[in-house]
């Protein structure tokens, strides 16, 4: 037994980190969801044999991604404690600082995302643009839609990885400080993005496409989570200890175990529902229009996936701060 008594501790670091809270969770969640949405809608829009007019199939997704990312960015500004110094972030770029990547990256993503919104805006909705120059700008962007979609695909991947690697860069937090986490966050972001597209898309074909894509992403995610835990478990003591919150059935840690259980309920359930849909449609072929029941079922599966993503981020952000690299 080791008894440790410390005089002179700061509550932000003792007995465990209380550094980041739900605001970062929402930032990472909304950022990830926006990233996944951007990637998925770019996939939709880059599919071959599409004429310019047909692209309007996936027009709301960039707008939704933009709003989510902007709201997410608002949450991180709420989390930082001296935002009036933020301009200093734009007077330098620190390649080793993930915060610096975020400071530059998020506005850049928002910028390309904005271009994307304009590029895919259908003619009949152009009247929403208040200013004439925006309309003209939108017209000029339209032919470059594929390029912009490609850029947004990359931006989405960057953003999704960034939300994971931001956590992974912290030496003092063993649960975060490994390379699997960014990949896990990437996959879960993509999967949530696919789910979101399923919800918002009106086109039967798109809904079906992303249901299929999501199946693969969920499978990868369900593989990655145990791998992530396994990697930590076989590492040195602090990393092993970092898993404790996820495997404790009493006390203050139980909520993390519960979170893990929920993730492993929601994702397989979503998977099962989606596979059900696929088999159903493979047998009978895609209908012209889904019934309300079918849509409800699809949306429930998608919401389960999105909820799983949120729970995953929340659990990892909070549980990570419970166990430090040092033993006290």
């Amino acid at each position: 037994m080791v008894e440790i008594t410390i005089t002179g501790t700061n509550s932000i670091t003792f007995p465990h980190f209380e550094v980041w809270d739900w605001r970062i969770v929402l930032y990472l969640f909304l950022g990830g969801l926006a990233a996944g949405t951007l990637v998925m809608c770019s996939i939709a829009n880059l599919r071959p044999t599409k004429t310019v007019e047909e692209l309007a199939k996936c027009v709301r997704a960039p707008l939704i991604a933009f709003v989510m990312l902007a709201v997410g960015a608002l949450f991180i500004i709420l989390e930082i404690k001296a935002p009036w110094h933020l301009y200093w972030g734009y007077l330098t770029f620190q390649p080793l600082s993930l915060m610096s990547w975020g400071t530059w990256g998020v506005p850049l993503v928002l910028f390309f995302n904005a271009l994307y919104i304009l590029a895919v805006l259908p003619e009949e909705q152009k009247h929403y643009l208040r200013f004439e120059f925006l309309k003209r700008f939108s017209d000029r962007l339209k032919p470059k839609m594929r390029l912009i979609a490609k850029i947004n695909f990359v931006a989405g991947i960057f953003l999704a990885i960034y939300t994971g690697i931001l956590l992974a860069s912290f030496l003092a937090v063993p649960l975060w400080n490994n390379a699997t986490l960014p990949i896990l966050f990437l996959v879960s972001a993509l999967s949530a993005g696919a789910a979101l597209i399923v919800i918002i898309a009106k086109d039967v074909e798109i809904k079906y496409l992303f249901t299929k894509i999501d199946v693969w992403l969920i499978v990868i995610e369900l593989l990655l989570i145990p791998l992530y835990f396994y990697g930590l478990y076989v590492s040195s003591a602090p990393y092993k200890r970092a898993l404790e919150p996820f495997f404790s059935f009493k006390g203050e840690y139980f909520i993390y175990t519960l979170a893990l259980i929920l993730i492993f309920l929601f994702l397989p359930l979503a998977l099962r529902m989606k596979i059900g849909e696929i088999t159903e449609f493979e047998e009978h072929g895609l209908p012209h229009q889904f019934t309300r029941g079918q849509i409800l079922r699809m949306n429930i599966a998608a919401i389960l996936v999105i909820a799983g993503t949120l729970i995953l981020r929340g659990a990892i952000v909070y549980a990570g701060q419970l166990i430090k690299l040092s033993i006290y």
Binding site: I12, T13, F17, V19, W20, E79, I80, K81, A82, P83, H85, L86, W88, G89, S97, L98, M99, S169, F170, L171, A172, V173, Q321, K324, L325, S326
Partner: peptide, 11 residues
């Protein structure tokens, strides 16, 4: 800017 990244980085 008070982003607290340094706090989480310092072991």
């Amino acid at each position: 800017i008070g982003c607290k990244a340094c706090i989480l980085a310092c072991p």
